[in-house]
Design a protein around this nucleic acid. Sequence first.
DNA 1: AAATTTTATTATGCATGCATAATAAAATTG
DNA 2: CAATTTTATTATGCATGCATAATAAAATTT
Lengths: 148, 148
Amino acid sequence: MRDKTIDYVLRTTWLAVQKMYNEEASKFDSTMATGFTLLSIDPESGTPSTALGPKMGMEATSLSRILKTMEESGLIERKPNPKDGRSVLIHLTPFGREKRDYSREKVLTFNETIRGQISEEKIDHFYEVAELINGLISKKSIYNQNED
Amino acid sequence: MRDKTIDYVLRTTWLAVQKMYNEEASKFDSTMATGFTLLSIDPESGTPSTALGPKMGMEATSLSRILKTMEESGLIERKPNPKDGRSVLIHLTPFGREKRDYSREKVLTFNETIRGQISEEKIDHFYEVAELINGLISKKSIYNQNED
DNA sequence: AAATTTTATTATGCATGCATAATAAAATTG
DNA sequence: CAATTTTATTATGCATGCATAATAAAATTT
């Protein structure tokens, strides 16, 4: 793997994780994105969809379709937001609350397993590299002259 | 970002890179996957499609559709493989060769920029974490009893 | 307050991933 | 060598990402 580029490693590693999460979720007729969304909704008071995208690192337009599917399968309800007529409040149904617990366990297990098998320092460096990449991209300082 | 899970960081970082590559490619009516594929084809003698998937970390079924699109847009040709009637040899067209040069430069610049701004040790640790994740997933040792 | 701009959401189309099924050619087995 | 299995490719459907456009409600400007 050391002979592969950084982008290759990022891509294939993420795809492996995604595939694993989707395989786990499919045992319960669910998907990875559905699980992530369930985890981002406040199970008590519901969550304005405005908050959901940023929390999940997902654009509103991508989230919208996932929420539609989730509403159709009875995991969530969309209710009007009394504070903003454009916005929507997302609430878990009892069914959604059950699935949420399952998703939480899978995500915790995955992340704890990794952290349990490698030093904290290496995890820190992993985060540092990721931060560097995100920083370079958001500043558009790779292919463009700095123009901000 | 340090308060985010490892899977979150992997996902959002990869999506940022993918988006950046697609934005660059779209300036030339191309896509990231097309660029990656161009880079994996031997510009001299062509490449059997059997070799392409593993090299790119992509399944044959995903590659097939990309090759179809690339053939339609005149970047590659599919020729019969004299050594194996099932297999196909992928050749770059002159047009494909041009685009290949452009892709190579983008990928090199990206990877060199990152390596130029962080210590080799941290990059090594990034690879180690990625290897750990891939290893755990391929051994199915996260959610399953070890059965191999 | 009316006009303009911004924001939140949805719909839709395309790109790219996986799963599955179909097909044809090779490889293996009997 | 005929029958079976494996391998390479393609087609298709669904999931999830982005881009873009449409719409409605706020927020801002004038």
